[in-house]
Computed example of a mutant assay.
Amino acid sequence: METNLLATIEWLQLFGSTPLEILATSSAIVAVILIARQHMLGWPLGILWASLSAWLAITEWQLVSDGILYLFYIPIQLYCWRAWVIGGAVQTAPFIPRWLTGQRQLALLVAAIICIVVWGQGILVLAEQVSWIPQPSLLWLDATTTVLSFFAQFLQARKRMENWVIWTIVNMLGIYIYWLKGSPIYSIQYGIFLVLGIYGWIQWHRSCQSCPQSSAVNP
């Protein structure tokens, strides 16, 4: 029994895992699967994941942007949960996934680039002025994933298909970032997110095809 316990501990250490990382990863994976299937329970699990990840990002990995992102995720997940409840219960037209217009996609791209630059510079200033905030690590990669995650989350709340495209970029960068930070289980988590993002896109695309576009008007 003792030998098995020691073997388990060594396996967890090999993958750089802690109980908090394992719990956060598990809740995140289930949450993404449920959201891909347009199930409401994905959002409370997302809140659990965000809370644990905020603690880990700031205290363990010094990823300041990611830590702030995870903290913001908590009210954002509540907003998304509410948006889906209202969208599904109040609207007379089907609340189904849709694409933005080409003009709005271009505006989204420009806004994202501007926000990444502003966010990155803001984090540098904040780290210099606030003593308890550590010097940011991987500043621009971290800023990019943070800003794009905000955009993707709000697009997901409105069931816009572009959210899955943005999540793909975030997940690919996340694999690289957390591997560099010595947390292979979080790298694996983002790899799973990448696969689930493709699954989510397929599921939402089927919803798009199942309803006439003329009657599907999302908020």
Results as ranks from 00 to 15, higher is better:
residue 8 T to N: 11
residue 8 T to L: 14
residue 10 E to G: 03
residue 10 E to Y: 07
residue 14 L to V: 08
residue 15 F to K: 10
residue 15 F to A: 12
residue 17 S to F: 11
residue 18 T to M: 04
residue 19 P to W: 05
residue 26 S to M: 14
residue 28 A to K: 04
residue 30 V to E: 06
residue 31 A to I: 01
residue 33 I to Q: 07
residue 33 I to S: 07
residue 33 I to E: 01
residue 36 A to Y: 08
residue 37 R to K: 15
residue 40 M to V: 06
residue 40 M to Y: 11
residue 43 W to P: 03
residue 43 W to G: 04
residue 43 W to T: 03
residue 46 G to I: 03
residue 50 A to Q: 08
residue 51 S to Q: 05
residue 52 L to Q: 09
residue 52 L to P: 08
residue 52 L to C: 10
residue 54 A to T: 00
residue 55 W to H: 14
residue 55 W to T: 08
residue 58 I to C: 01
residue 59 T to S: 10
residue 60 E to N: 08
residue 60 E to C: 00
residue 61 W to D: 12
residue 61 W to G: 06
residue 61 W to M: 11
residue 64 V to I: 14
residue 66 D to C: 02
residue 66 D to W: 01
residue 67 G to N: 05
residue 70 Y to H: 12
residue 71 L to Q: 10
residue 71 L to G: 10
residue 75 P to R: 09
residue 78 L to E: 00
residue 78 L to D: 02
residue 78 L to R: 04
residue 81 W to S: 04
residue 81 W to A: 01
residue 86 I to K: 11
residue 87 G to T: 03
residue 88 G to E: 13
residue 89 A to E: 15
residue 90 V to D: 11
residue 94 P to N: 08
residue 97 P to A: 15
residue 99 W to H: 11
residue 99 W to T: 10
residue 100 L to N: 07
residue 102 G to L: 12
residue 102 G to C: 07
residue 105 Q to P: 00
residue 106 L to A: 13
residue 107 A to P: 00
residue 108 L to T: 03
residue 108 L to I: 00
residue 108 L to A: 03
residue 109 L to A: 14
residue 109 L to Y: 12
residue 109 L to S: 07
residue 110 V to A: 15
residue 114 I to G: 14
residue 114 I to N: 12
residue 114 I to Q: 06
residue 115 C to Y: 09
residue 115 C to M: 14
residue 115 C to R: 04
residue 117 V to I: 14
residue 119 W to R: 06
residue 120 G to H: 11
residue 120 G to F: 10
residue 120 G to Q: 10
residue 120 G to N: 13
residue 121 Q to N: 15
residue 123 I to D: 08
residue 127 A to F: 08
residue 131 S to D: 13
residue 132 W to A: 03
residue 132 W to G: 03
residue 140 W to G: 10
residue 140 W to P: 09
residue 141 L to W: 14
residue 141 L to E: 06
residue 142 D to S: 00
residue 144 T to K: 09
residue 146 T to Q: 05
residue 147 V to D: 00
residue 147 V to P: 01
residue 149 S to G: 13
residue 150 F to P: 04
residue 152 A to N: 10
residue 152 A to K: 05
residue 153 Q to C: 09
residue 154 F to Q: 15
residue 155 L to T: 01
residue 157 A to P: 03
residue 161 M to S: 06
residue 162 E to Q: 01
residue 162 E to A: 00
residue 163 N to R: 03
residue 165 V to N: 09
residue 166 I to S: 06
residue 170 V to F: 07
residue 173 L to C: 06
residue 173 L to S: 04
residue 175 I to R: 06
residue 177 I to F: 04
residue 178 Y to W: 15
residue 180 L to A: 12
residue 181 K to A: 15
residue 182 G to N: 07
residue 182 G to Y: 13
residue 184 P to F: 02
residue 185 I to H: 09
residue 186 Y to M: 15
residue 187 S to L: 03
residue 188 I to G: 07
residue 198 I to G: 15
residue 198 I to L: 11
residue 198 I to R: 06
residue 199 Y to R: 06
residue 201 W to T: 07
residue 201 W to E: 04
residue 204 W to N: 05
residue 204 W to Q: 07
residue 207 S to L: 13
residue 214 S to N: 14
residue 214 S to Y: 13
residue 215 S to V: 02
residue 215 S to G: 00
residue 217 V to K: 13
residue 218 N to D: 04
residue 218 N to I: 00
